[in-house]
Design a protein around this nucleic acid. Sequence first.
DNA 1: ACCTGAACACCGTTCAAGT
DNA 2: ACCTGAACACCGTTCAAGT
Lengths: 240, 240
Amino acid sequence: MTGEDREARTATPPRRGRPPAGRSTLSRTAIVDAALALIDDDGVEAVSMRTVARRLRVDPKSLYNHVADKDALLDGVAERVISLVRVPKPTGDARADLRAVCLAYREAALAAHPRAATLVLTRRVESAGSLAPLDAVLSILARAGHPPAAAVHVVRTVLAFMTGTLLREADAAAPFGTDDFGTAAARTAALRESGFPAVGEAAPHLARCDHEHEFLTGLDLILDAFGSRAPRATDGSEQS
Amino acid sequence: MTGEDREARTATPPRRGRPPAGRSTLSRTAIVDAALALIDDDGVEAVSMRTVARRLRVDPKSLYNHVADKDALLDGVAERVISLVRVPKPTGDARADLRAVCLAYREAALAAHPRAATLVLTRRVESAGSLAPLDAVLSILARAGHPPAAAVHVVRTVLAFMTGTLLREADAAAPFGTDDFGTAAARTAALRESGFPAVGEAAPHLARCDHEHEFLTGLDLILDAFGSRAPRATDGSEQS
DNA sequence: ACCTGAACACCGTTCAAGT
DNA sequence: ACCTGAACACCGTTCAAGT
């Protein structure tokens, strides 16, 4: 902070033209880094081409030499975060391995960069860097005997559950501190007075949420459900 | 369009001060209506205080007399769409009744206002008008013998799955036409060349998606899973 | 109680001109 | 190949002044 001040005071006036040979200040990855750091500090809504450029001490328009537009930049951030998923080594126990990948995904998307989570969950990202977790899950399922069509279906169901759950976690984290007491009481009261009988009855349970427990038990439920459907042994072709 | 031109040419110069008595041009619901209509026509990203105001032939700043800010306006739109869910009459068959509410939710959130879907799925809305579907689900579960804590857990798991699934449907609808052939082939090829073996293997299945089938079978899977856990009969208190 | 003029501090993006 | 000055067409929002 004081370091930044000193640098700002010493700053040479912005030079024009190509930068001095080897000193290629800017790059796509540097820009994505800056955007992610900005999101970590101030949230997604703080991202603008101008604020990102400010962080890099660069003219906003310079970004367009490395990134198509703001939308592409945000895609880049989402992709980067997914690429941070540390896919665990498979043990051979399909169910446990699936669970482990899901936990790693939650770790990267939610714990490491909580304020970038909505980006990751909300944007359709399918570029090279982000396919590793998908590949891991598909190969676990293949080894367990699921034909590709069935495996894709499992992936989609699990991913849908995870997206919904993590999205809920992500924006619960924003307004309230993780486990808030006062607001839980207020929310209970509000739900009680809503005029909806069943909502009123369940009010205290609706007002607070143990996110981790919710995630783990929901995931187990779904994995159990798929586990109880015996996968086809070796044959890939089926009647439909 | 020609009608608009004519009106625009005839338009009286904007009058100042309070409008002529009974003619209260503006209201919160009128503004939400206009925003929703705008979203239906041009998508969420087309919404600005200025475009909404233009649609109402009103000064942008006038909106602030009825709506706190743009964020509150978008909340209002999400709430309105949820309030459009037509909760079906319960038949007494808990499983079928749950399924019916979920289908109604999908109908309202996705079929009726597809371009507003992300708004509904993405914003935490808990105000009076949008609690009806939640109340319906909770009362179905209560009647089936689930104690409140368990019922809330079921709701959360099902809602997470629905959020993820409908979000996927919503932004698949945007880029591609519902069932695209050419792009499916292109996507298959791209996934094959990704260098990830399991992804390559499953490429044709990843490239296309029967959204309705995916939704229905996923939902059945989850409902089956909960169905196989016998609900506690009458007693609400348990050991934990 | 509700509207608007003037104004502020922002945006994303283009393009030609520089080195 | 990469940077920037000038510029365009937008934003959300405030506030005092009007009726």
